[in-house]
Design a protein around this nucleic acid. Structure first.
Lengths: 146, 146
DNA sequence: TCTTGACATAAAGTTAGGTTTAGGTGTTAT
DNA sequence: ATAACACCTAAACCTAACTTTATGTCAAGA
């Protein structure tokens, strides 16, 4: 059993955030002794899931929904699995997008290192995109299409 | 030259968002003819950079700062390069985090597919974490440490 | 005893990034 | 000439996810 202060330290989250999550129904099985919250292993795992689902872009109200399914029991296993599978797709798509973003960042890093060497952008403006070095050209094309 | 409506279609952004970006100073060189915004290649590239930098987590006010540096000329090449290098680190760190998130999602997907087969979580609760299949075990450990 | 520190609540405040609304201009199809 | 569009502005509004504030309880140490 942990106090709210201990959990705050463990997860590096403000106490106010934990109280907010509780108020929003994210710890439906949280017990109290004379008003004081008692976080058990159950709430610790819930917090790991909360942090995971938040990272996937899920909103608090939908995380609350998930927590309700957990209490409903075995009849919601399929729903819960589908949720995780959906969020997995979301994250995979997000990683793909971030890799496209990295292409733009790599191109711009190269661009400015060349501009620093030249002292201006004249030469660069003339070689874009056909005379770009091959390694940079693909990053340029990837980040400038659509 | 493009109208705001054409740019809205090209980037799949609401017209109101483009006006908002303009108001926030993200198109410092945008010209107008009798009050109507004229988006040129310059603003199109600016928008590509805006979308890129937003994806890296940069705030509008910092993107505005970058746009000001662009106008200042060659004296800001180094600052601009450093910005892109920083954002590149941010994105690489974010991809690492998302991969950890994927570990949790993979574990949970596996967990619920097993729970569906069993009809309950009894067996699962007893095999965590030591008797987990190896492929799942690493995902579990990865997403349950720290 | 008194004050410090951890816990509690309810309600108001904050922030970023837009979006909506209300009112107006100018051009083009019927 | 009138209606439908695409454009314009300023200002109010919105939302999610917290955070802060004001107020109070309770246990332990000086």
């Amino acid at each position: 059993m942990y106090t709210i202060g201990q959990v705050s330290e463990m997860f590096d989250l403000p106490v106010s955030t934990l109280r907010y999550y509780d108020k929003e129904g994210l710890f439906p099985e949280l017990n109290r002794t004379s008003g004081i919250r008692q976080f058990s292993e159950n709430e610790i795992e819930a917090l790991r899931v909360i942090e995971c689902l938040k990272k996937t872009g899920l909103q608090i109200k939908d995380i609350k929904q998930f927590m309700s399914w957990c209490i409903e029991g075995s009849s919601t296993y399929t729903k819960r699995k589908e949720l995780f599978e959906n969020q997995k797709k979301q994250v995979e798509a997000e990683i793909t997008k971030l890799n496209k973003t990295l292409d733009m960042l790599n191109f711009k890093c190269w661009y400015y290192s060349e501009a620093i060497k030249d002292g201006n952008e004249e030469r660069l403006k003339n070689i874009i995109p056909n005379e770009l070095p091959n390694s940079i050209k693909s990053a340029y094309i990837n980040s400038h299409k659509e």
